[in-house]
Nucleic acid binder design. Structure first.
Length: 215
DNA sequence: ATGGTGGATCAAATAGTCTT
DNA sequence: AAGACTATTTGATCCACCAT
């Protein structure tokens, strides 16, 4: 008897669904969700090698929905990942973000403007690598403020022309109190802290510039 | 071109549950 | 209790927008 002979075998999985094997390898399988018989290659596999119960298409659909329903979580991941990329602190979490959203209550934390498009904003930009994505360094602002501030730290922004007409004094004070609190400091301590963080960022930048020259 | 943001998608990793 | 299986979470990327 030829040992290369193709041996087909029909099995039913735990849920009684059809699976077709050839020489012990899965060839076809029924998708749990759409119920269609599909090639094994149309199913993604887990890292451990098991096939997913849903076909690729149905898994993608499920995942889309999941992502829609967990947008806040995604926002948090993104900010964490971005911080990590530049080697900055990255311990921001969902709880921090939800608390921040509740605090902002639909208003820009700089201009006080009411908006349904609040964006995450780093008080000290990520590229400076010192404060990163941490609770005391992230606020929510309206699009205008975000665009205007861009690569400035909050205090550079406040001192620059770009902030003209975009700052509500009272709101700013509330925000600083919030940030100070998040860092377990008094507002004055917090401002000093931020100043030192900026100085540190400058030193780091210089260090790397010199490093590059040397090479 | 660059550096900040958000939205979406894809696939892999991890966490958790069920069976035996 | 281990291993088979599934549910959920995370990382990586690509795209668009906006103002220097």
């Amino acid at each position: 008897m030829n040992t290369n002979e193709k041996v087909f075998e029909v099995r039913t999985n735990r849920l009684g669904r059809f699976e077709l094997y050839q020489n012990g390898k899965l060839v076809q399988k029924v998708c749990r969700t759409c119920g269609k018989v599909k090639l094994a290659s149309e199913f993604l596999r887990y890292t451990q090698g098991h096939y997913r119960p849903d076909c690729h298409e149905c898994f993608n659909k499920w995942q889309r929905k999941y992502i829609q329903e967990n947008r806040d979580l995604r926002t948090v991941y993104r900010q964490r990942n971005r911080a990590r990329e530049v080697g900055a602190p990255d311990n921001y979490n969902l709880e921090d973000y939800l608390e921040l959203k509740a605090f902002a209550n639909g208003r820009c934390m700089i201009s006080g403007k009411k908006t349904d498009n609040l964006q995450v904003e780093h008080v000290q930009t990520l590229s400076k690598r010192v404060l990163g994505s941490t609770k005391g360094n992230i606020i929510l602002v309206c699009e205008e403020v975000n665009q205007a501030k861009r690569d400035m730290s909050l205090f550079e922004f406040l001192q620059s022309e770009r902030s003209r007409g975009l700052v509500d004094r009272e709101q700013l004070e509330r925000t600083i109190r919030y940030l100070a609190d998040a860092n377990g400091m008094t507002p004055q301590e917090y401002l000093d802290f931020l100043y030192r963080a900026e100085e540190l960022a400058k030193d780091i930048k210089e260090f790397f510039e010199n490093e590059n020259k040397a090479n």
